[in-house]
Structure formats: structure tokens, C-alpha cells
Amino acid sequence: MTAPHGQDTHWSRVEESGTVTGMRLMLAIDRWLGEWAFRLLLIPAAAYFWLRRPLARRASREYRHRLQHTFPQLRLGPLATLRHFICFGMTMLDKVRALHGRIDGERVHLPDRATLREAIESGRGGLILVSHLGNHEICQALSRQRPDLRLSLLMHTRHAQRFNALLASADRGERVEVIEVSEITPETAQRLRERIDEGGFVVIAADREPISGDQRARSFDFLGAPAPFPEGAFRLALLLRCPLYLLLCARNGRGYSVHFEALGDSRGVARAARETWLATHMAAFVRRLETYCGRYPLQWFNFYPFWKSPAHGSDRGQR
């Protein structure tokens, strides 16, 4: 259920650019002309969006300022905002490549291989938090490498429709299941519980602003200023009582780096201890996200106003 929202800047209304046809075109360019050609063609496209989407441009600029302030030693170089858009364009190509199984396993660097192996082999399953940082679709390439890694991607119906259209056009591996939801119902909870009991992993985005205004959010300092983070993923972890992980895949030079970290475990958390668990683990997630933003500065793909500002004067989603 999505409550009517006063502000049209809300992420679910800012359309992610690009259609299925566009994606097919990208893939064709990549296939016939190579990545460099794609990147070259991306420049005018990114410049177009950069000019035509002042909201996204401002969001990118704000992010850059906060990042620079938090990591003063970071050198972002000229035209960082435009390059931020170009990087986002590259993720489109990566998404399509991942869906079509065209990510070369040798280009995927997995520093946390041991953690991943242990998580899979423990058979306990878990909840995996993903974010706007990098491109978690690359995890599809990962599940090709580890056929015993079973992923169920929890996705808002609105996004799932577009995503499914893409999937339909791809000869993908069958390892990733997409579960469409607009809210978590008892039926969904049972389904997720089953996946985890089977040793599978449920993947959920943890830094999206709440979809409907009634979903609870908490404010955390992120890159030096308070920003609302939804509680949803963490409440789900408490409900499912399972190990909690963080996953992100970022472009790293010519290849990709996949990070997979254990964030905690919600098994055996007493009801009275829940709020403390929630606060501790949300804070830990935000800290990790911040660290990775410093590491992959132009790969935090969040093009809407993320921080609370007096101009927007909103406490939407806040308690």
C-alpha cells in the first residue's frame, strides 16, 4: 500500500531513466562496439540528464559536498557531478550484463570469500542488506559462481514491474527469485521464513526512504548530517530471526569488487531488547555504508534529496 504523498520528489516517483528498449540498445552497443564505445555514447546521454534533471543534479552535488567534508583527503576531480551521472549510466550496462550472464567471473573480485562461504555452508540462511551503493545486480554473477547461493530479492512492486520486464528479455540463470511486495504481509513473512529455513538468503534494500509515509524511519548521522533510514529491513531481520549481512558490488577499475560482511544475528533477541538491537545494527549499517562511500565515492546512486533540509522541512517517515 502506498499512501498518497504530498511531495513529488519522493524516490518512487523519480523515474529511473531508461526503458527496456534502451537497455537492449545498450547491450547491442556493448556487444558489437565494446565498453569504450558505450562509455563514449554515455557522455552526451549523461550530460542530457544532468541538464534536464536539476533535482538529481542537486542531490548529487549535496552528496559530493558531504562526502568531501567527511573525507577531506578524497580527490574527486573535476566535473564530479557529471561523472557521477556517467557512473550511474555504466551501472545500467552492468545490470543488463549481469542479467544476461555476461559478467566475466574472472573480473569479479571477492575479498570476503571466506565470509560468504561460511554463510552459505552454515545452512542458516540469512537476510542480506543491499544499498544504493554500487550495483547489487552483480550478485547474480556471484550466484552463477556459487550455485548453492540461493537469493530471493525482495522488491517493491513498482520497481519489480520494470525489473521483470528486463528479466523477461534476458536468458538469465534461475538462481535469483524476485519477490514482489508493496508491504510485508503474514503470507510474505512465511514465504521468507521458508527460504531462510532452506538455507537461502533474502535480499532487501536498507537505505531506501520509506515507500509509504507510515513506515517508520530513524535518523542517523550519515556523512556528517542527519538522514532518515527506514527501519523496515531491520524489523524484518528481528522477525525472521536470522543472521544479517551486508552486500555490495562496486566497479573497481576494469573489474568489480563484491563485499560481503556479517552485520549481526537476530536469533534469540528478546522482545525487550529489540529496540536496542535495532538501533545498534542500524547504526552499524550506516557506518559501513559511509566507509564504502569513501571507498567508491561516485557509486552511491541516490539521486533524490536524502538529507533532511529546512527547505524540504519534512519529517516524513520520521517518528
Binding site: 510485508i184 504481509t185 503474514p186 513473512a189 512465511q190 521464513r193 524489523r235 522477525l239 525472521l240
Partner: peptide, 12 residues
């Protein structure tokens, strides 16, 4: 509503 989810899991 969160209790409802818990109950659903308990019934299962």
C-alpha cells in the same frame, strides 16, 4: 501489524 507477522510465523 508486526505482531500479526509474528503470529503468522508461529502458526507456520
Amino acid at each position: 501489524s508486526i505482531d500479526a507477522l509474528e503470529l503468522g510465523l508461529a502458526l507456520q
